[in-house]
């Protein structure tokens, strides 16, 4: 069997049955579809900052899940992506996600991070975040890359986890065990370490080169 056919089938079995987009199917090439994102996320998905996240080099499945969550608008709210994500079919999202997953996550934006805070954040991150966001946030195997991501974006998402507008409980892609683990880590970060500790972790990840 052709490799891409295996891939399409795997994608269909795992993810094709969830949700239906109203967008019409199109046979547009992956680059044609993905390049429309660059005006906000940067060429090849490498953001020049200050806030829109880099999507290059991300786990493909994470990108697919994110687009689906935005499109449904229930467990991940956004000012803009909720409106954009609805414009693509699942097959198109697969293509777009594959395109950006194949690009290199580059750290080119000028981010003004505080080295003192980053040092403090390193210890907290090792304790609370490293077991999922491995290799000091550089890993993309299971979870989104945090290392070198835009600080306002990271901050906004922590805020959304806290408020529940980015819902861990309703995330269909996490096991109950993962949900408990993630909620515990976030609670520890925000309650034990407070705003200073949270800010330190943000500075740590944003400063990774």
């Amino acid at each position: 069997m052709h490799k891409s056919m295996t891939y399409a089938l795997a994608a269909g079995v795992l993810f094709g049955l969830i949700g239906v987009s109203s967008a019409q199917a199109s046979d547009a090439e992956a680059s044609m579809l993905a390049n429309t994102c660059n005006g906000c996320h940067g060429p090849d998905g490498v953001s020049q900052g200050p806030a829109a996240p880099t999507i290059a080099g991300m786990n493909k499945q994470y990108l697919v899940e994110s687009m689906k969550a935005y499109s449904e608008g229930t467990n991940r709210k956004s000012s803009i992506m909720q409106r954009i994500a609805k414009g693509y079919t699942e097959a198109e999202v697969e293509k777009i996600a594959g395109f950006f997953a194949g690009k290199k996550f580059e750290r080119v934006a000028m981010q003004n991070t505080d080295s003192g805070a980053a040092g403090k954040g390193k210890a907290i991150a090792k304790d609370l975040c490293e077991s999922c966001h491995e290799k000091e946030g550089f890993a993309a195997e299971d979870y989104p890359i945090l290392a070198g991501q835009m600080m306002p974006y990271l901050k906004n998402n922590l805020m959304d986890f806290k408020s529940g507008s980015r819902s861990i409980d309703n995330n269909p892609n996490m096991s109950d065990k993962e949900k408990r683990k993630k909620k515990r880590a976030l609670a520890d970060l925000m309650e034990k370490h407070g705003d200073d500790g949270t800010n330190a972790v943000l500075n740590f990840y944003a400063s990774r080169k």
Binding site: N38, G39, C40, H41, G42, P43, S47, Q48, G49, P50, A51, A52, S79, I80, A109, M150, P152, N156
Partner: peptide, 14 residues
């Protein structure tokens, strides 16, 4: 507003 500024930097680079 944050995204507007990101939009500016990214569309110009693109």
């Amino acid at each position: 507003v944050e995204f507007a500024y990101s939009w500016y930097n990214n569309i110009c680079k693109d």
